[in-house]
Simulated assay, not measured.
Amino acid sequence: MAERVLEVTGLRAGYGPAEVLFGVDLHLARGEVAALMGRNGAGKSTTLKAIMGLLPPRAGSVRFAGREIAGLPPYRIARLGLGYVPEDRRIFTDLTVAENLAVGRRPGRSSWTPERLFEVFPNLAEMRHRRAAAMSGGEQQMLTIARTLMGNPEAVLLDEPSEGLAPVIVEQMAEAVLRMKAEGIAVLVSEQSLDFAAAVADRALVLEKGAVRWEGDVATLEADEGVRRAYLTL
């Protein structure tokens, strides 16, 4: 069994008086891709934010690389080797592609470089000197993932990478996730598209009302119409 790099137990979190997560349990092994699935409002993005420290957990344990990180500020969690790709991108729009990548550089056990990332995202290679503000939404999403990988993370939290993107960009997103997996990076991807999850993930975890209601391999989820109707379809 591969080494577990991330273990979450009994995670509770919310916004103000509203509780969103009610005891989320999940784990992630080195080199594994797990898809966190569910309808809008199920708690997918909140789970990633709570793991990353962007939303302080109210209860529960979050262990990364054998260390308890619940309650740590996000910058300390990032320095430990946990990368985060937000749904809203948050790139530096006044900087060029090359400058955004340089900002994300951090020594680590992997060796991601701009040249390697340009192989994964050829679109970025063609616009390395372009300001990020002049890029399309899909191109900005690619840049966000590339900048995160420049930090040489051991694990990556990836929030809704395929939402609203053209099919050709989604294919490059999937290729990037598979390259991460090949490098031994653990990836937890929040995703609504079962097609995207099937293309990249080893396991699926289905959230409903802030708790994991189903867990198993993606092929089983694809074949189980009852589970899909109960937790995924509108």
Rank of each mutant, 00 (worst) to 15 (best):
L158V: 10
V97W: 08
D195E: 15
G23V: 10
G71S: 08
A204M: 03
V20T: 13
V218F: 09
L178Q: 15
Y15L: 03
L178N: 14
L221M: 06
L82A: 06
P74A: 13
G184A: 09
K44N: 07
F64W: 02
L48D: 09
A146G: 00
V187C: 01
A211Q: 13
G137E: 02
L143F: 11
P107E: 07
A166W: 07
G71E: 09
A50Y: 01
G23P: 01
P161N: 09
S193F: 12
L55C: 11
A134H: 14
I69M: 06
V170H: 04
S61N: 08
A70M: 01
P56R: 15
G38N: 04
T233C: 08
A186V: 05
G138T: 06
R203N: 08
I169Q: 04
V187T: 09
Y15G: 02
I145G: 02
V85R: 10
S110K: 15
V33Y: 03
R89Q: 02
R105S: 12
V97S: 05
G226I: 01
R128H: 14
E119Y: 01
P114K: 08
K181L: 11
V103K: 09
R58H: 08
L54Y: 14
L26Q: 00
M150N: 04
R67H: 07
I145Y: 04
L55A: 12
D217W: 06
A98I: 05
L117K: 00
V20I: 15
G14I: 12
E222M: 14
A2I: 06
A18F: 12
P153E: 10
M142N: 04
A198N: 10
R116E: 06
L82Y: 05
G137D: 01
L55S: 11
S193V: 13
A146K: 01
E68N: 02
R12S: 08
L6D: 04
E99Y: 10
E7K: 09
G151E: 05
F121G: 02
F121Y: 09
T96W: 05
